[in-house]
Design a protein around this nucleic acid. Sequence first.
DNA 1: GTTTTATTGTGTTAATCGTACACAATGATA
DNA 2: TATCATTGTGTACGATTAACACAATAAAAC
Lengths: 256, 256
Amino acid sequence: MIQDPYSLPAEEFYERGHTYFLPHISIDCVIFGFHDNQLKVLLLEWKDSLRWSLPGGFILKDEDIDQAATTILLKRTGLEKIHLQQFHTFGDPNRDRKKHGINPPKGSNSKGWLMDRFVTIGYWALVEHSKVTPTPDAFSRSCSWCEVSEVPELILDHNLIIEKALESLRQQLNDYPIGFNLLPAKFTMPELQSLYETILGEKLDRRNFQKKILSLGILTRLNERKQGGAHKAPYLYKFDRKKYQMALKRGLSFGI
Amino acid sequence: MIQDPYSLPAEEFYERGHTYFLPHISIDCVIFGFHDNQLKVLLLEWKDSLRWSLPGGFILKDEDIDQAATTILLKRTGLEKIHLQQFHTFGDPNRDRKKHGINPPKGSNSKGWLMDRFVTIGYWALVEHSKVTPTPDAFSRSCSWCEVSEVPELILDHNLIIEKALESLRQQLNDYPIGFNLLPAKFTMPELQSLYETILGEKLDRRNFQKKILSLGILTRLNERKQGGAHKAPYLYKFDRKKYQMALKRGLSFGI
DNA sequence: GTTTTATTGTGTTAATCGTACACAATGATA
DNA sequence: TATCATTGTGTACGATTAACACAATAAAAC
């Protein structure tokens, strides 16, 4: 028994995965990034080049499910500390590759464990786009960012999973200041506003937005401005974890 | 193969359950009721009389997980149409009866499927207390209501599951008008307010509460008053599903 | 270099919403 | 018949949100 079954070649993973993992249970991750004023998700392109799917994985027989999700995130992005959120478990009995006409790799047993019905636990994650190294898994030829509104048809119910993840993300963005996880350490107010507008899908008033965000008292304005863009250079801000902790104690009222 | 494995005697269920259900996956239900101005949950007392647990069950190999939860609800309450909400999946590897010193029934195989590690999908449900017929399962001697703040120590992480369910319920109660599911068809404003106060754990102003609730435009005041109590008889109201649908379309702003 | 342009930084006003609060009406009880 | 606890209703104030205007600035155009 080796330590990391994900390092196995695809054929062996397919034939022997069931000795490592809980059967019938998987994890799927909707990994959000923000780039060029667009909200993107990380997708895998299969080696047969005809199918796309969400990054996913399985749960070791003695592994915590959050830990399993963290491992998947690390493998696909190279990042360790990631804002991670379980949001829904999908249990339609048609979540079954056989029923969707997905065949096992050539030469493999067509009754392999991967061809069973799976209940999948959905997680979404927020990552800083520029820090991610998209890395395909053993079954994929590529791993790449895709704008949320341009996601192609994915296997099984993965399109539905993205929809539900977005819904949950919008909800959370309204209740907690989690948007910073999608931006670099230093960012401008217009960048933050654009992020909110993109995710929530509505235009916001520039002045009221700034007032609201600053009133939370969790940002520090730096003595730097973002140079390079055309027009007036905006200030840079950073998210202040200490201020955030203090604000939490006295009760943080959010809602954009 | 019979149709309903839950009808099996406990011993047979224990020995042969794995032929019907997905392994390593369970469902646990936090069933909320409101009575005597108290929020209650339905608990099972085991036949050995020393342990308590949440009502739960398993997923048939070709069954939808929401359907599986609905079946559990029906078995324990006798009710069919129930407001049901999946809220979290619990996947600590220590969710394992062996690790918690829980023994299988006497004479049974100590390596039975029920002794494995389980990932459990948590649902909460809102029911009308007076309509429920609490019904124990094959492993339990009783099924009864327990005030939320007086829940005894339960098996595994079931106390944690209740905590998380409550958290999710409070959140939802703030976002959607779901409280009516806990009351009879006809109810008074003081009853509804008491329900909100109990779940949210705070006193509310009587007049502002009424204003807010009525402004939603989803209640109909009946030409009846609730007789019998001491003091002035309050009006009866009913939740109006049609008005609710219309309100949803024009955007329902909630938040108590 | 000067002008133009799009964008940033900031503050004021009006409208809305939430909170605090008072008094008359009612039904049972004393 | 008087008392009491509770219900039904309305108003005033403060806080929050939404709408809106103008000066400052950095790059680009001329």
